[in-house]
């Protein structure tokens, strides 16, 4: 196998993962999706470290990746606990909630701008229900019941 080409391929994949994670972290507003993007950047770093370890013929890269895994597990536990607490207080996972953090007596400036920008051009889609074909025989209508019930 061409070791240098392998090294280059791994570094490019790792760079793409880190770049995509950056894009997601900057652009997405859901806390959990932002957390996913950070984990994706960590994956890119892991790939890069392992490729460098193979290039040098040592195991140091793999050992470092193992510690990255351990730290990522700790981070996941704490971040999920904090996200859950935020959701219980606010009812959503939007990072715009953090703009309301302020000292008592200080004006909040960003909230109105954010809510104005959050307007959607396309309405939220209606939930779709399954269409059930009618089965069996339609019952005979009772004119007496139709007289006093609005909906038979």
């Amino acid at each position: 196998m061409n070791e240098q080409a392998l090294w280059l391929g791994y570094q490019l994949v790792a760079a793409a993962l880190v770049a995509l994670g950056t894009v997601g972290f900057l652009a997405r507003r859901n806390m959990i999706v932002m957390f996913l993007c950070v984990e994706m950047m960590l994956q890119g770093v892991a790939l890069s470290l392992v490729a460098w370890g193979r290039y040098h013929g040592t195991l140091d890269g793999q050992v470092l990746v193992l510690f990255v895994l351990a730290v990522a597990a700790c981070e996941a536990a704490l971040a999920m606990a904090l996200a859950l607490m935020l959701f219980q207080r606010r009812g959503h996972l939007d990072t715009a909630a953090c703009f309301r953090l302020h000292e008592p007596g200080q004006e909040v400036q960003l909230v109105e701008q954010v809510s104005a920008e959050g307007e959607l051009e396309e309405p939220e889609p209606e939930p779709t229900w399954p269409h059930l074909p009618p089965a069996g025989v339609e019952p005979q209508r009772d004119p007496e019941q139709e007289a006093y019930r609005s909906h038979v």
């Binding site: 507003r29 859901n30 959503h92 996972l93 939007d94 959050g118 939220e124 889609p125």
Partner: peptide, 10 residues
């Protein structure tokens, strides 16, 4: 449903 903050990126 889908929250507004998921349907619009910064």
């Amino acid at each position: 449903g889908q929250a507004a903050y998921d349907r619009r990126a910064w």
